[in-house]
Every structure is written in structure tokens, then in C-alpha cells.
Lab assay of single mutants.
Amino acid sequence: MLEGKVKWFNSEKGFGFIEVEGQDDVFVHFSAIQGEGFKTLEEGQAVSFEIVEGNRGPQAANVTKEA
């Protein structure tokens, strides 16, 4: 699992990017966010995740919000 911070997330469109120190930003789709209820992320929020190869390159999977 990697750790990063949410760079930005558009809850209307359901996607955004996660910043990872020393690496390129990683695309995140709302469907990759773990948990119940409305799936969104806040700018600057700490998250842990895995990287998988998507249709358009690397993207986040199994995203969990850090306490």
C-alpha cells in the first residue's frame, strides 16, 4: 500500500488525483474508494491505496481514508 494526499477531487464528476511524494500524481475514480455511503475525498486528505494499470495508465485502487 502507498500513502498520499488528495490533490483535488471533483465529487460531481467522481474523480480526482492523489499526490505521492517522489512520484507522478495518481488518478482516482470514486468507485475505488472503500467504505459505505457517498464516496468522495477532500483536498489534502491523507489516503492509502494501491496502484493498478487502468485503460489510460496507472490509477488508484482500494483507496482508504486515513484517520
Score class of each variant (00 low, 15 high):
residue 1 M to I: 15
residue 1 M to Y: 11
residue 1 M to K: 09
residue 1 M to V: 10
residue 2 L to R: 11
residue 2 L to F: 13
residue 2 L to S: 09
residue 3 E to S: 14
residue 3 E to Y: 14
residue 3 E to M: 13
residue 3 E to A: 12
residue 3 E to P: 07
residue 3 E to F: 15
residue 4 G to Q: 03
residue 4 G to L: 00
residue 4 G to I: 00
residue 4 G to A: 03
residue 4 G to N: 00
residue 4 G to H: 01
residue 4 G to E: 01
residue 5 K to P: 00
residue 5 K to C: 11
residue 5 K to L: 08
residue 5 K to W: 07
residue 5 K to N: 08
residue 5 K to Y: 11
residue 6 V to R: 01
residue 6 V to K: 01
residue 7 K to D: 02
residue 7 K to W: 00
residue 7 K to E: 03
residue 7 K to V: 06
residue 7 K to L: 06
residue 8 W to T: 08
residue 8 W to G: 04
residue 9 F to E: 00
residue 9 F to L: 03
residue 9 F to T: 03
residue 9 F to V: 06
residue 10 N to P: 01
residue 10 N to H: 10
residue 10 N to G: 04
residue 10 N to I: 04
residue 11 S to V: 11
residue 11 S to H: 09
residue 11 S to W: 07
residue 11 S to D: 15
residue 11 S to P: 15
residue 12 E to F: 15
residue 12 E to R: 15
residue 12 E to K: 14
residue 13 K to V: 06
residue 13 K to P: 03
residue 13 K to C: 06
residue 13 K to E: 08
residue 13 K to Y: 09
residue 14 G to N: 03
residue 14 G to P: 00
residue 14 G to L: 02
residue 14 G to H: 03
residue 14 G to S: 03
residue 14 G to V: 00
residue 15 F to W: 15
residue 15 F to G: 03
residue 15 F to D: 03
residue 15 F to Y: 14
residue 15 F to I: 09
residue 16 G to M: 01
residue 16 G to D: 01
residue 16 G to K: 00
residue 16 G to Q: 02
residue 16 G to V: 01
residue 17 F to Y: 08
residue 17 F to P: 00
residue 18 I to P: 00
residue 18 I to M: 01
residue 18 I to G: 01
residue 18 I to H: 00
residue 18 I to Q: 00
residue 19 E to T: 12
residue 19 E to F: 06
residue 19 E to N: 12
residue 19 E to C: 13
residue 20 V to Y: 09
residue 20 V to W: 06
residue 20 V to G: 04
residue 20 V to Q: 11
residue 20 V to N: 07
residue 21 E to I: 09
residue 21 E to G: 09
residue 21 E to Y: 12
residue 21 E to L: 09
residue 21 E to S: 12
residue 21 E to H: 10
residue 21 E to N: 15
residue 22 G to W: 04
residue 22 G to L: 04
residue 22 G to M: 06
residue 23 Q to P: 03
residue 23 Q to V: 08
residue 24 D to W: 04
residue 24 D to A: 08
residue 24 D to F: 04
residue 24 D to R: 14
residue 25 D to N: 07
residue 26 V to F: 04
residue 26 V to N: 02
residue 26 V to H: 02
residue 26 V to K: 03
residue 27 F to P: 07
residue 27 F to C: 04
residue 27 F to I: 04
residue 27 F to M: 05
residue 27 F to S: 04
residue 28 V to P: 01
residue 28 V to L: 05
residue 28 V to H: 03
residue 28 V to R: 02
residue 28 V to N: 03
residue 28 V to Y: 03
residue 29 H to E: 07
residue 29 H to M: 02
residue 29 H to G: 03
residue 29 H to Q: 04
residue 29 H to N: 04
residue 30 F to N: 07
residue 30 F to M: 09
residue 30 F to E: 09
residue 30 F to C: 10
residue 30 F to G: 10
residue 30 F to P: 03
residue 31 S to C: 03
residue 31 S to D: 07
residue 31 S to R: 07
residue 31 S to M: 05
residue 31 S to K: 08
residue 32 A to P: 01
residue 32 A to H: 06
residue 32 A to L: 02
residue 32 A to K: 08
residue 33 I to T: 03
residue 33 I to W: 02
residue 33 I to E: 03
residue 33 I to H: 03
residue 34 Q to M: 13
residue 34 Q to P: 05
residue 34 Q to V: 13
residue 34 Q to F: 07
residue 34 Q to I: 10
residue 35 G to L: 04
residue 35 G to T: 11
residue 35 G to W: 06
residue 35 G to Q: 10
residue 35 G to S: 11
residue 36 E to I: 08
residue 36 E to S: 13
residue 36 E to N: 15
residue 36 E to A: 09
residue 36 E to P: 14
residue 37 G to C: 06
residue 37 G to Y: 05
residue 37 G to F: 05
residue 37 G to D: 07
residue 37 G to R: 07
residue 37 G to I: 04
residue 38 F to W: 12
residue 38 F to I: 08
residue 38 F to M: 10
residue 38 F to N: 09
residue 38 F to A: 12
residue 38 F to T: 10
residue 39 K to M: 07
residue 39 K to Q: 08
residue 40 T to P: 04
residue 40 T to D: 11
residue 40 T to V: 12
residue 40 T to Q: 12
residue 40 T to G: 09
residue 40 T to I: 10
residue 41 L to G: 02
residue 42 E to I: 11
residue 42 E to R: 14
residue 42 E to G: 09
residue 42 E to V: 13
residue 42 E to L: 12
residue 43 E to H: 14
residue 43 E to S: 15
residue 43 E to L: 09
residue 43 E to P: 14
residue 43 E to W: 06
residue 43 E to Q: 15
residue 44 G to W: 02
residue 44 G to H: 07
residue 44 G to Q: 07
residue 44 G to M: 04
residue 44 G to L: 02
residue 45 Q to Y: 02
residue 45 Q to A: 11
residue 45 Q to S: 09
residue 45 Q to D: 08
residue 45 Q to V: 07
residue 45 Q to P: 00
residue 46 A to P: 12
residue 46 A to Y: 14
residue 46 A to K: 14
residue 46 A to V: 13
residue 46 A to M: 14
residue 47 V to N: 02
residue 47 V to A: 02
residue 48 S to D: 07
residue 48 S to R: 15
residue 48 S to Y: 11
residue 48 S to V: 11
residue 49 F to H: 00
residue 49 F to W: 00
residue 49 F to L: 10
residue 50 E to M: 12
residue 50 E to D: 12
residue 50 E to Y: 08
residue 51 I to A: 06
residue 51 I to E: 04
residue 51 I to V: 12
residue 51 I to K: 14
residue 51 I to Y: 07
residue 51 I to G: 02
residue 51 I to R: 08
residue 51 I to H: 04
residue 52 V to N: 09
residue 52 V to Q: 12
residue 52 V to K: 13
residue 52 V to S: 09
residue 52 V to L: 10
residue 52 V to C: 12
residue 53 E to W: 11
residue 53 E to Y: 14
residue 53 E to F: 12
residue 53 E to K: 14
residue 53 E to N: 10
residue 53 E to P: 07
residue 54 G to M: 04
residue 54 G to A: 08
residue 54 G to V: 04
residue 55 N to A: 15
residue 55 N to I: 10
residue 55 N to C: 12
residue 55 N to K: 15
residue 55 N to W: 09
residue 55 N to H: 14
residue 56 R to A: 07
residue 56 R to V: 08
residue 56 R to I: 04
residue 56 R to T: 09
residue 56 R to P: 06
residue 56 R to S: 07
residue 56 R to E: 08
residue 56 R to H: 08
residue 57 G to K: 05
residue 57 G to A: 05
residue 57 G to Y: 05
residue 57 G to Q: 05
residue 57 G to T: 04
residue 58 P to G: 06
residue 58 P to E: 06
residue 58 P to C: 09
residue 58 P to K: 14
residue 58 P to S: 09
residue 58 P to V: 11
residue 58 P to M: 13
residue 59 Q to E: 11
residue 59 Q to Y: 14
residue 59 Q to H: 11
residue 59 Q to D: 03
residue 60 A to P: 01
residue 60 A to E: 02
residue 60 A to K: 00
residue 60 A to C: 05
residue 60 A to L: 02
residue 60 A to W: 01
residue 60 A to Y: 01
residue 60 A to N: 01
residue 60 A to G: 03
residue 61 A to N: 08
residue 61 A to W: 11
residue 61 A to M: 09
residue 61 A to C: 13
residue 61 A to K: 11
residue 61 A to T: 11
residue 61 A to D: 06
residue 62 N to G: 07
residue 62 N to A: 08
residue 62 N to W: 06
residue 63 V to Y: 00
residue 63 V to N: 00
residue 63 V to H: 00
residue 63 V to K: 00
residue 63 V to F: 01
residue 64 T to N: 11
residue 64 T to P: 02
residue 64 T to F: 13
residue 64 T to W: 14
residue 64 T to C: 11
residue 64 T to L: 14
residue 64 T to I: 15
residue 65 K to S: 12
residue 65 K to G: 11
residue 65 K to V: 14
residue 65 K to I: 12
residue 65 K to A: 09
residue 66 E to G: 13
residue 66 E to W: 15
residue 66 E to Y: 11
residue 67 A to G: 07
residue 67 A to S: 14
residue 67 A to V: 15
residue 67 A to L: 10
residue 67 A to I: 08
